[in-house]
Design a protein around this nucleic acid. Structure first.
Ligand SMILES: [Mn+2]
Ligand SMILES: [Mn+2]
Ligand SMILES: [Mn+2]
Ligand SMILES: [Mn+2]
Lengths: 150, 150
DNA sequence: CGCAAAATGTAGCCTTGGCTTCAACATGGC
DNA sequence: GCCATGTTGAAGCCAAGGCTACATTTTGCG
């Protein structure tokens, strides 16, 4: 039997470790998701996404927003020229669409479960980032919105 | 009339900023919550909570666990003597109880919504940290477990 | 137009939460 | 009882995500 050098988590502990690793990974991408979602929103709404507006809507300083935008660009989700506002790449737009759909479903599930609207919006902002594909599918079934409408 | 210097987010933007701030704050305490929950679990199960076991169950290096434990101690949630394992303060125990209850409710709601068990455990590990009191109450009502069983 | 105000960007600081590496300690098996 | 092995702890590195302070650019208004 393969002898598991260096005490790797066995059985239960291993599965638990995997769960926590998954949560950590979701936490790591949460911020980027919020940025692309918001940028898409601003672009749709007003035609432009300026760092200052992004910062204001997220409740952070403009410097923080600008650093995050730099990361979005590094990761191929956004592009921008100096002093010219931010835009999403095709990849960024696709991600934004996913994230927005997920956000809506999470809010709707919370509302369906009797959570007050303001609170639902609050909590969804964090919960959405930890809803896997399988859970999203279950949520949609529960809401009576099958994924494959064929 | 306080004249709102320096372009403070107005109306919608302000509420959205508050939502994101709330999510950031939840994210910040998530890690501590997982530690106290796990430590309580280990103490109940085996009578001791050793840094190595904590690290293994969380899927991080022992050094990472030890630094987090130091933070737990700084915040009055845990105490320990060198080489002697970790224990929870009264405050830490109370927090652990809350966190465990919340974890259970979240998993049960996901199961009730048709999420597969393995996935429910996965997602709950992240979702639980973003479930406010009001949402928790709604979940308990939905599950038919009123908070005040009087 | 010209210039003040607003927006943008840069630099540098801090904390958190990961990691590896190495040193010190505790203990169980012989 | 000793010592190999496992556990614990300390140090130091890194990236992310906050911040303030300051420099630069754009823009809008008189
Ligand atoms: Mn969000
Ligand atoms: Mn969202
Ligand atoms: Mn958790
Ligand atoms: Mn948990």
């Amino acid at each position: 039997m393969e002898d598991d050098k260096a005490a790797p988590p066995a059985g239960d502990a291993m599965r638990e470790a995997a769960r926590h690793a998954s949560a950590r990974s979701a936490r790591a991408s949460a911020l980027l998701h919020d940025y692309v979602e918001l940028i898409a929103d601003l672009l749709e709404g007003t035609g432009e996404a300026r760092p200052t507006d992004i910062a204001r809507r997220l409740g952070v300083s403009h410097a923080t927003a600008i650093k995050a935008i730099a990361r979005l660009k590094r990761e191929g989700l956004a592009h921008s020229k100096p002093y010219r506002g931010v835009f999403l790449t095709a990849e960024g737009q696709a991600l934004a669409a996913e994230v927005k759909a997920r956000h809506r479903v999470v809010v709707d599930v919370l509302l369906a479960l009797g959570v007050p609207a303001e609170v639902a919006e609050m909590d969804a902002e964090g919960i959405e980032h930890h809803v896997s594909e399988a859970t999203l599918a279950a949520f949609e079934r529960f809401l009576g919105r099958p994924r494959t409408p064929g």
